[in-house]
Amino acid sequence: MIEIFQTYTAEFMQGMGMTIFSSLLAFAGSIILGLVCALFEISPIKPLKIIGTVYVEIFRNIPLLVVTMFFYIVIPKYVMPMSGFSAGTIGLTIYTSAFFAEVIKAGINSVPTGQWEAARSNGMTYLQAMHHIVFPQAVRIIIPPLGNQTITLVKNSSVLAFVAGFDLMYQANQISSITFQQVPTYFIVGILYLIITMPLSYLMRHLENKLEV
């Protein structure tokens, strides 16, 4: 196993780098998109509410791979060129944002309406109330499930392997088909994934315990 790692260190590291990079981009994108979507979903403006709800209901019920393939095969053919990495990351972002939206919505909804009323009756606008009063309280509820979704996001980044995204899983495929050494290669890749996800997982558990009281 060590020999495989030593021979292909560059490829493994590149794969790991791509996985982390893709995950970071998708995380940022999903937070923004998810936040917007959540706000749409709870908005009193009917059209926005419909858009938000439809978006979430669509992307929570379609496989990530289907969304990714759409961006890899369909979009470049009819709209604009898109590399494997881009297709995978965009697919990952859109897919995950639907889940983030639900978590954020649940968090905001969990804040008692009394808080809203108190804020509004003190002269705050909707946005001010949201920003200063409601959201900070919602964050407590949001963080644990958001953390879980983030770990899921990192694992889901492996979908890049289907579209030549040069991530860790793609490298695993390449290397194991050249060397015929499937088990050692997957072991190494497994450990590399765990190096990313395990710390995140324990961080989440730690945060959960802190917030529980």
């Binding site: 770990i151 694992k155 889901n156 980044s157 492996s158 979908v159 392997a161 899983m169 695993a172 495929n173 194991s176 499937q182 088990v183 997957y186 890749v189 497994g190 994934y193 765990l194 996800t197 395990m198 997982s201």
Partner: peptide, 11 residues
Amino acid sequence: RNLPLLLIIFF
């Protein structure tokens, strides 16, 4: 829980 499902399938 912390490994990608794809890796588990391959393995």
